Simulated assay, not measured.
Amino acid sequence: MMTNLFTRLRDTLKADLNEVLDRKENQNPIGLLNQYLRECEHETEIARKLVDRQVQLKDEFEKELVEAAELAEKRKHQAEIASKAGETELYQFALAEQDHYSDRADRLRVSLKYVQGQLEELEGKYEEMKHKLKDMHIRRMELMGRENVTRANHQINKVLDVNTNSDKPYSRFQEIESYLDRLGEQVDRSFYRSTIDARVAQLEAEIEINNGKSIS
């Protein structure tokens, strides 16, 4: 049962990521990916606890095996002493106990071997899950980079794209720049008109002075 549950958790991480991202076209794909990764991280944490539990079970089997083997050896020694002492009843009891503990140790060895095999399988699948999760974190970084470039290009194009929309900031800047150029020309013309009379009067005075000098 534990192996089947672990397999289900591992298969969750093997789901096609593109299928997740395409689930709702109008949603932010990075947001969907983050949600999916949180779910996978939760499943991976469950798997880790199952692996830890299997390790604990293996340790318990090993402890029980050591205890049963020691008791079997102890009863064997006691049976030998009782036999030498001629204590038939004690010998038969110790011998029966030895058989009981030996049988238990044999059964525990079989169970321990099976549990160890399960643990190795679970640890392998758990490592596979962690690698898959790490790969998806890297893919999220790649997608975030692509999204960031797309957003940056969009913002940059809003400024640089002069031809597509007159409401673009750069277009408005050009309009203001043209307006300031026209305003500067108007100021120059106004200044020139305001000074032309004085300049002409000055020229006339200079001409009269020069004519007077010529007559004298």
Rank of each mutant, 00 (worst) to 15 (best):
M1L: 13
M1R: 05
M2D: 06
N4G: 07
N4L: 08
F6W: 10
T7M: 06
R8W: 04
R10G: 10
R10S: 09
D11W: 15
D11I: 02
K14I: 04
K14V: 12
N18V: 04
E19T: 03
E19C: 03
V20A: 11
L21N: 11
L21W: 06
D22H: 05
D22N: 13
N28G: 00
L33F: 02
L33G: 02
L33R: 03
L33C: 01
L33I: 05
N34K: 12
Y36G: 06
L37W: 02
L37S: 07
H42N: 03
E43G: 08
I46T: 04
V51Y: 09
Q54A: 05
Q56L: 12
K58T: 06
K58Y: 00
D59H: 10
E60P: 01
F61A: 09
K63C: 04
E64C: 12
L65Q: 14
V66F: 08
V66P: 00
E70M: 03
R75D: 06
K76T: 03
K76Y: 02
A79I: 02
A79E: 13
E80A: 01
A82R: 07
A82P: 10
A82K: 09
K84M: 07
A85L: 14
A85W: 15
G86E: 09
E87R: 13
L90T: 07
Y91E: 14
F93K: 15
A94E: 06
L95V: 01
L95R: 15
E97I: 04
E97D: 14
Q98H: 15
H100Q: 14
H100F: 10
Y101V: 00
Y101G: 00
D106T: 08
R107K: 14
R107S: 07
L112G: 01
V115P: 00
V115H: 03
Q118P: 00
L119Q: 02
E123W: 00
E128K: 04
E128R: 13
K130D: 10
K130Y: 13
R139A: 12
R139E: 15
R140W: 09
M141Q: 14
E142K: 15
L143W: 11
M144D: 04
R146W: 05
N148L: 05
N148K: 07
V149Q: 13
N153K: 10
H154C: 06
I156E: 01
N157S: 12
K158G: 11
L160Y: 06
D161H: 04
V162A: 02
V162P: 08
V162Y: 12
N163C: 09
N163R: 14
N163Y: 06
N163P: 05
D167T: 11
D167F: 10
P169G: 03
S171L: 12
R172A: 08
Q174Y: 00
Q174A: 07
Q174V: 14
Q174P: 07
E175G: 10
I176M: 06
I176T: 09
E177A: 09
S178H: 01
S178K: 08
Y179N: 00
R182G: 00
L183F: 00
G184Q: 09
G184D: 06
G184N: 09
V187I: 03
D188G: 08
D188F: 08
S190F: 07
S190G: 09
F191G: 12
R193I: 14
R193W: 15
R193N: 11
T195H: 13
V200I: 14
V200Y: 15
E204Q: 08
A205S: 14
E208G: 08
I209T: 12
N211M: 10
G212N: 07
S216Q: 07
